[in-house]
Structure formats: structure tokens, C-alpha cells
């Protein structure tokens, strides 16, 4: 039985491999999803193995086999430099806690997994882009330079214009302008890159993360027309109307256009809207699952404060409340 499981596991990797060989670059994204799926299957596989290990029905050779498979599987995780503690812990109150992990490890693992195929094809992409920046300036570089010194200014790493982080930020954004010349640079990308740098520290990884965000987001999210960003606001309005009809009616009564606030949440994935502890957890989910996470959290934020918002009866006061309330949320559970 264990042998068959093992075959299944190999089959998935094989499938990925075949896909990589046969499909062109536009399918990289699907592959990345498949790989993510593969990881999900792997973790389920690990759970099954653990159960098998605990069960009494196996003879000694089978037990040995299961033990080895678990070790192999964990070894695989280690190889990627990322390991979640697979055993759930309980806190003092008896609640299951989220397994301990380093944000940095998770993000690096996601970035590397998502860009694996692409990096194999273009191993020196970032260095090439940087060289390209030296000989040729994208028209967007002017705006990039204007925004460098006004990015995450409250963060100590970005508070000085000469700091290492600001220099890295500049190189990442300039490289990105050539990576995706149609976007060039869109205000907001500076915040995404800054967050990527703060967590990953490594410049090239952070660059990949920005590219990944751009892949995760629908096409035209940061382009010159921002079409997809605006479309998302319409979609979100419909969701809000469906999930929170009272709040929607309240907004309508007081002529509140929530997209004034929520557009920002979506474009920069809550950077500078949520406190960092919660922000990083939201980003974990966002990087893993994609844009639906933004919709979910945006709805959750409104739901969490719905009663408070409903009490406010003045247009301006509602706007003022919406502008800052996300920063007052500190309970990430």
C-alpha cells in the first residue's frame, strides 16, 4: 500500500515535469499552481503516513517502510529550506495553535517554488535586467526615483535615503520596469517591493516576489489603465452587497464610495493598512492562495467592524473611520 502511495507521489512530479517540457512559458503559472497543489498533496500524504505510523495494524517491516517514507518526505522539505512543524500544538486554553514558522522561510519557499521553472530557463534574469538598466533607462525610472525616499518612511530600514534597503529598492524597481515594460512602474509597487525586501532581505528573492505578485494579480492590475484593479472594486462591491446588505445600505444612504478606501487595500495588498503582524500572515495566505485572499480579508475587515460603522451617521465621519480602522485591529486570529 505504501508503495502505491509512493508511486502517486512520483507521478505528480512526473506530471509536472512533462508539463514543463511540453507547455510553453505562458503555462508557467498553471505549473506553479500544480506545484502548490502537489505540496498540498504531499502534506496530506504526510498526515496519512503519520496515521499509519500510529496505527497498531502494521508489522515491523511495514513500520520500517513508513518510518523511512516519513523521513524521506521531511528530508524533501528540508531540501527546500522550509519546514513547517507538522505536529499541531495546543495553547494554554486548549486552542490549536498555528505551527511555528519563520515568515522568511515560507515566502522564500513560495517564491522559489512559483518561479522554479522560469528560473531554470532564465538563470541570470535579474543580473541581466540590472545590466540592461545600466545601459538603458525605462521612462518610468523618473517616477521610481521620486518615490524611493517616500516608501515605508515609518520603517527604520527605509527612513534614510542612503540606506542599504533604499538602494536595493531602487535596483529592484528599475529591474522590474524592464521585466515588465508595459507596466513600467505603478505607484504601490514600491510598497510591495519594500515589504518583500524587509522579509526576504535578499535582493533577488525580493525581486522575484514582486514578479510573483504581478503574476498572481490579474493582468492589467498595475498597467496604465488599471482596468483589472477597477474591475475588482466592482466585484468587491457585489460581494459586500451580498454578504453585508445592511452595511451596503448604510453606505448608500450616506453616499459612501468604499472603493476610495478599498482600492488601496487591493492594489498594495494591505501594506500600510494593517499592522505588520497581521499583514505578514495575510501575505502568507495571499502568496499561497492568490487574490481571493484579498477579497476574504477585505470582507472580514468590514464584518469585524460592521456594528461600529453602522452607528456612524455622518458621511465625513464614516470616511474618517474607514481611513484608519484597519490599523486598530490587532487580533490576528
Amino acid at each position: 500500500m505504501s508503495g502505491r502511495l509512493w508511486e502517486g507521489y512520483c507521478f505528480h512530479q512526473l506530471l509536472c515535469f512533462v508539463l514543463i517540457l511540453t507547455l510553453n512559458l505562458s503555462f508557467v503559472l498553471q505549473c506553479a499552481y500544480l506545484e502548490a497543489k502537489n505540496c498540498q498533496i504531499e502534506s496530506k500524504y504526510l498526515v496519512v503516513l503519520r496515521r499509519l505510523q500510529e496505527s497498531k495494524g502494521l508489522d515491523s517491516s511495514q513500520q520500517e517502510m513508513v518510518k523511512r517514507l516519513i523521513e524521506d518526505s521531511l528530508q524533501g522539505d528540508k531540501k527546500d529550506g522550509f519546514k513547517l512543524n507538522p505536529v499541531s500544538e495546543y495553547n494554554d486554553y486548549g486552542f490549536k495553535t498555528i505551527p511555528d514558522y519563520e515568515v522568511e522561510d515560507v515566502w522564500r519557499w513560495i517564491v522559489r517554488t512559483r518561479t522554479q521553472v522560469y528560473r531554470k530557463r532564465n538563470p541570470n534574469r535579474y543580473q541581466e535586467l540590472r545590466k540592461h538598466c545600466e545601459v538603458s533607462e525605462h521612462p518610468a525610472s523618473r517616477q521610481i526615483r521620486l518615490d524611493l525616499h517616500r516608501t515605508l518612511t515609518s520603517n527604520k530600514h527605509f527612513s534614510s535615503p542612503t540606506s542599504d534597503a533604499v538602494q536595493k529598492l531602487q535596483r529592484i524597481l528599475l529591474a522590474f520596469s524592464w521585466q515588465n515594460p508595459n507596466i513600467g512602474y505603478c505607484q504601490g509597487l514600491n510598497r510591495l517591493a519594500a515589504i518583500a525586501l524587509l522579509v526576504l532581505k535578499d535582493e533577488e528573492d525580493a525581486f522575484c516576489l514582486v514578479a510573483v505578485v504581478e503574476i498572481i494579480m490579474p493582468q492589467d492590475y498595475y498597467s496604465k489603465t488599471l482596468t483589472a484593479s477597477q474591475a475588482d472594486q466592482r466585484v468587491f462591491r457585489d460581494f459586500l452587497a451580498e454578504k453585508m446588505p445592511r452595511l451596503t445600505a448604510h453606505f448608500k444612504e450616506h453616499s459612501i464610495d468604499h472603493s476610495l478606501i478599498t482600492f488601496n487595500w487591493f492594489l498594495v495588498v494591505f501594506v500600510e493598512s494593517l499592522v505588520s503582524d497581521i499583514l505578514l500572515r495575510v501575505w502568507d495566505a495571499f502568496l499561497y492562495e492568490g487574490t481571493k485572499v484579498i477579497f476574504r480579508y477585505a470582507l472580514a475587515l468590514f464584518k469585524y467592524n460592521e456594528e461600529d460603522i453602522l452607528k456612524i451617521q455622518d458621511n465625513l465621519e464614516i470616511y474618517q473611520y474607514l481611513r484608519f480602522f484597519t490599523k486598530t485591529i490587532s487580533d490576528g486570529r
Binding site: 518612511t153 504601490g188 476610495l260 488601496n264 481611513r323
Partner: peptide
């Protein structure tokens, strides 16, 4: 001294 670039629209009163 510095202020983050405004993304979209912001408002004051």
C-alpha cells in the same frame, strides 16, 4: 518631510 505617494484618492477636512 516626506509623505508616501498617494495611491488613488485620500481625503481630509
Amino acid at each position: 518631510q516626506v509623505s508616501d505617494p498617494t495611491v488613488g484618492v485620500d481625503f481630509f477636512s
